[in-house]
Design a protein around this nucleic acid. Structure first.
Lengths: 361, 361
DNA sequence: CTGTTAGCGCTTTCAA
DNA sequence: TTGAAAGCGCTAACAG
């Protein structure tokens, strides 16, 4: 078994040049190199199947070819989608992806930031809750940092979010328009998380605009018990008029849905159902579930591309799309799409006309 | 901005010792170190918030504190679950997780293996399709390699799988017992993938045992069109007696389910529905979906723990569970559980009695 | 119990 | 157009 790792000096020897020259070749410093040596080195590298050690390269203060994704919870479809999109962008550029889970714990997040610094990752994409913004500012000053999902003020970081407020308002308006006299908003206590804030304010704005009275219930984690409480609350205040239930994320709806369907209430005639996020089962539920489709894959893709471009990568569609790529120090908003389905067909209207996607933005 | 990374020599200076001593401290070579120096170094490290560079450590041929997960497709719930479980195990041990996606492409997988070698990850967990077993054998000879999900013969690798054959057979038997006269098995063409083979053979065995005639349709990716074809085939040969449809994985069922529900066939009386995998929407579907719950989280956890133990990590419940941990060079089977639900209540029986989990193994 | 020293594989001045 | 040599931060003989 050949347990030996091929080094630059072996390549140099085989090619009859110095390691300096090989290093130049590796770093594409072709300006000062005869086409012949260049060719020779290329051949030898191919023959020996040589791969430079990213560790050694990194140690010299340079590239580790590693980008990190720091996410709240890998179980959330949102996080996975970001990670998957990043992986797809990074791989062709031979960048590696390090995945970190914080569970929303600031201390855990800080540990990761330290660790990632130590590991000299070249850039990071994160879903933060804002507790480490000072450290992040520090980091963003010298390497590409992209904040996805949630909006925070970290000067030199890029921020990629969706139009939470607007999508939420439009969804709510749409529910009222479809004939529901009240809309129950079920979401987590916002705290410092912009997505939660904006989905709530969007909802409230729509209520105000239409003159309908707001009606909200908090559902914090763990969602299971919270949802049971919601159902109790609902049973207690059961409106006589048709109403809708709108959950601020797909995980809440996953818990709430079976509970609501057990109630003797007709969906969608008496009760409409809608959620932020597009659960994988939205079209499996009967009636199919109205939802807000976040452009998660696009957000991950843009985040990764922005990082790569900042790191000087150019090939493979980074440049072409350059103008639309997130800008560091600014907020990029990617619109969500409302997918109207049978669960909100309304008390009266036939719902066959309703299966139309509705672009927001 | 302090853009300076603290090095071992600064720690040494501050503690008034040589870097060797600090290095010894870092590597827990306490045997030859006065309690006093040990204490002093500890203090200085804490004060300076020093973190050794994993790159430099790795370069010396030692630890990079990185483990890789090489998965087929990050979109698959199975893969995500493995990754998430690994992350949970690795993080407390301060190991980092590198995530790689192969899309089932042997070339892509080989590239990753090369890259990971170059990067000196200390161990890897992979869902392979067997095309790079020689290379893997090579790698497994010098570092912990765990093959999850699928079974292959890689001498020194650990193999963590579930009892696909048995679970499939039991599910099929259960369907017959519940009064379905035929069971349509919908799965991918097995090829070299053990999970696909075993789920099929388990099904076939159950057919043979009971004397019912096998009935299979292939559904290869992309699943959408394949499922439409299945439905056409089904419409063509619609059994007069009650029958069941059993999909070999959850993604097929996700496509197939809405199509089947559009048919004018009563579920579960005329048609039973069951799937391998436990989709997140199994209890949301109406009727709730009978499924085979794979112990994905446990598999990921065991895989990561086996790697860590092999790497000499001892704390945090690795040792305690030591005896049950996967063994390198052997196959570890973790049982799946059949979750019987309303979708297979059978033509006649009341299905309230049926919501019982059924351990297999 | 502690320090000196020689690298790990690579990049990068500086000199030719 | 090329090479020699000095490290990057760390570990591990080998000496004391």
């Amino acid at each position: 078994m050949n347990n030996h790792r091929i080094t630059i000096s072996e390549v140099a020897k085989a090619a009859g040049v110095s390691i300096t020259t090989v290093s130049r070749y590796l770093n594409q410093h072709y300006q000062a190199m005869s086409g012949e040596t260049k060719q020779r080195i290329a051949t030898v590298i191919a023959q020996l199947n040589y791969q430079p050690s990213p560790l050694a390269q990194g140690l010299k203060g340079n590239r580790t070819h590693t980008v990190a994704a720091v996410m709240v919870n890998l179980e959330y479809p949102f996080c996975m989608s970001i990670i998957r999109a990043m992986s797809g962008v990074l791989t062709p550029h031979r960048y590696k992806l390090m995945v970190c889970e914080t569970l929303g714990d600031p201390t855990e997040e800080e540990k990761w930031l330290q660790t990632l610094q130590a590991h000299q990752v070249e850039g990071m994409v994160l879903q933060t809750n804002g507790a480490n913004n000072d450290l992040l500012t520090h980091i963003a000053a010298r390497q590409p940092v992209v904040l996805v999902d949630r909006q925070f003020d970290v000067p030199q970081a890029a921020n990629v979010i969706t139009n939470n407020h607007e999508a939420s308002a439009r969804l709510t308006l749409g529910l009222f328009q479809r004939g529901y006299a009240r809309v129950l908003f079920v979401g987590e206590t916002p705290g410092p998380v912009s997505t939660r804030q904006e989905r709530l304010t969007g909802y409230l704005e729509a209520c105000q605009q239409t003159g309908f009275e707001p009606w909200t219930v908090a559902a914090d984690q763990p969602y299971g018990p919270a949802c049971q409480a919601v159902v109790r609350e609902l049973s207690r205040n059961l409106p006589t008029q048709p109403f809708a239930v709108y959950t601020a994320n797909g995980l809440i709806m996953r818990e709430l849905y079976p509970l609501l369907r057990q109630l003797p209430i007709d969906v969608p005639k008496q009760m409409g159902l809608a959620t932020f996020d597009e659960p994988s089962w939205a079209h499996i539920a009967t009636p199919s579930l109205t939802c807000v489709r976040q452009p998660t894959a696009l957000m991950g893709e843009l985040a990764a591309k922005a990082v790569l471009r900042q790191l000087g990568e150019t090939e493979q569609g980074l440049a072409e799309q350059g103008d639309n790529l997130p800008v560091f120090g600014a907020v990029t908003t990617v619109p969500s799409q409302i997918v109207w389905a049978d669960s909100t067909a309304g008390p009266t209207r036939s719902h066959s006309d309703d299966k139309i996607s509705d672009d927001t933005l």
